[in-house]
Simulated assay, not measured.
Amino acid sequence: MSRRAGSAGTNGTNGTTTLAFVESPVQLLNVLEWAHTRGVGAGAGGASAGAGAPGAGGSGAEASGGKLTLVVLSPTDPMTRGQLRRMAELARQEGHEVRWEEARGGAAAPFQTIGGLAGMLRRAPRVVLGDPFSRYVQLLLTITRARDLVVVDDGTATMEFVAQLARGERLVRWHRKGGRPGPRDLLFAPVASSARRRLTPGEDRRVEIFSSMPMEETPAGVTVTSNTFAWTRTRFGPPRVTKGADMVGTSLVETGVVDADRYVAAVRTLARTHGAARYFAHRRESTEKLHRLAVETGLEIVRPDLPLELIARRGPIGRTILSFPSTVVHTLPLALAGTEVRVAVCDIDPSWLTQNASPRAQGFLSGVTGSARDVHRLAAVGVG
């Protein structure tokens, strides 16, 4: 394990261990992309060590070399756990160390997990995290003394995180914003505020955001680095492209944003209009909803065992990929660069939103679609 951060030359040397905390397969994928870009880890290309050492005048974006330990804060959802295990195996194949934590395995699990990680956190000069909104991650941020913090994409939530950080707002997920803070929110508020302060660059702390998402506002002093999915394109594909269309599922129903009946009707109309045959389910979609989709639309429901960027890159994949506003409208064009696959995104009609949807939901979803590059925009379909 590396020495504590603080002395020049510690960061970026071969003895340094970067700690990364992930809770989803996409976060883990984006840590692998970051490591590939930085030359971190045995399988990352052996970039030269020493750049960006503390006190050396370099930015966190220049830091390279060293080792990577991925800490998986495992959720309880079976689909997510399955994808995480597959991604963890890919990380090991790249030469990275993976530490699997049953972080939610009972009432005592969080205390045991945080206690077991405290020493590593205090020693690590660089920490990478995938979800700054996570209470688990926010708790861990109160322990770390790292001088380099890196936030990798956790999907479209990254866009909201960057905007909130730039405006000095409290960190709240976009689909919850607008509601009153609950008792747990108020109890956790001091920790969340501390996490936001630690994610703000300072004289002795550098913050990097590694993202494929568009950034309207960039917080002062934060380094933003583009994720081009170079590792994915190097490791997989190019895919075999079929003549038909595939559809990408979303968890907007499960998060209470979109009405289930409207969603099913929209999927049915899109599938019929574009000749889609397969529906790639989001890992958080409910079994009941997927069964209903299969019965009412005739689509073949596919439960991917890896993030869709890797599934699409491995192929076979349809010539057209249909999606609602989501992360993949930004990431798939990058992962599939150089292929003939077209990504088409269908807008969410305001009438599809539930009464409980955040007041910001429509504007946020429109922004996700409108800011996507290299996609074909479809008007919202009539669901009658």
Results as ranks from 00 to 15, higher is better:
Thr250Ile: 10
Ala266Cys: 11
Pro239Ile: 08
Thr242Ile: 06
Arg240Asn: 10
Arg278Glu: 08
Tyr263Thr: 05
Thr273Arg: 15
Glu254Val: 00
Ala281Asp: 04
His274Tyr: 15
Met247Gln: 08
Arg283Gln: 11
Gly244Asp: 14
Val241His: 03
Val264Ile: 13
Arg283Cys: 02
Gly275Ile: 08
Arg272Pro: 02
Arg283Ile: 07
Val258Ala: 07
Ala276Ser: 14
Ser251Ile: 07
Gly256Leu: 04
Thr242Ala: 13
Arg284Ser: 14
Tyr263Phe: 15
Ala266Trp: 02
Ala260Lys: 05
Ala277Tyr: 03
Arg283Gly: 03
Tyr279Phe: 15
Asp261Ser: 13
Ala271Ile: 02
Arg262Met: 09
Gly249Ala: 09
Ser286Gly: 13
Ala245Arg: 01
Val253Lys: 00
Glu254Asn: 09
Arg262Ile: 01
Arg283Thr: 04
Val267Ala: 00
Arg278Met: 08
Ala277Thr: 15
Pro239Ala: 10
Thr287Ile: 10
Ala245Lys: 00
His274Pro: 07
Val253Thr: 09
Ser286Trp: 04
Ala276Ile: 06
Ser286Lys: 06
Thr287Lys: 13
Arg240Ser: 13
Arg283Ser: 10
Ala271Pro: 04
Ala281Gly: 08
Asp246Gln: 05
Val264Gly: 05
Leu252Tyr: 01
Val241Asn: 02
Arg268Phe: 04
Thr273Asp: 15
Ala271Gly: 14
Lys243Thr: 11
Gly249Met: 01
Thr242Asp: 10
Asp261Gln: 14
Arg272Phe: 03
Thr255Ser: 14
Gly256Phe: 00
Asp246Ala: 12
Leu252Met: 13
Pro239Arg: 05
Glu285Tyr: 06
Arg268Ala: 15
Val267Leu: 06
Ala260Gly: 08
Pro239Asn: 10
Ala265Glu: 12
Arg240Asp: 12
Arg272Lys: 14
Glu288Phe: 06
Phe280Gln: 01
Leu270Cys: 08
Val267Ser: 04
Thr273Phe: 04
Thr269Gly: 04
Lys243Pro: 09
Val257Lys: 02
Val253Cys: 02
Asp261Cys: 09
Asp246Ile: 01
Gly244Arg: 07
Val248Lys: 00
Pro239Phe: 03
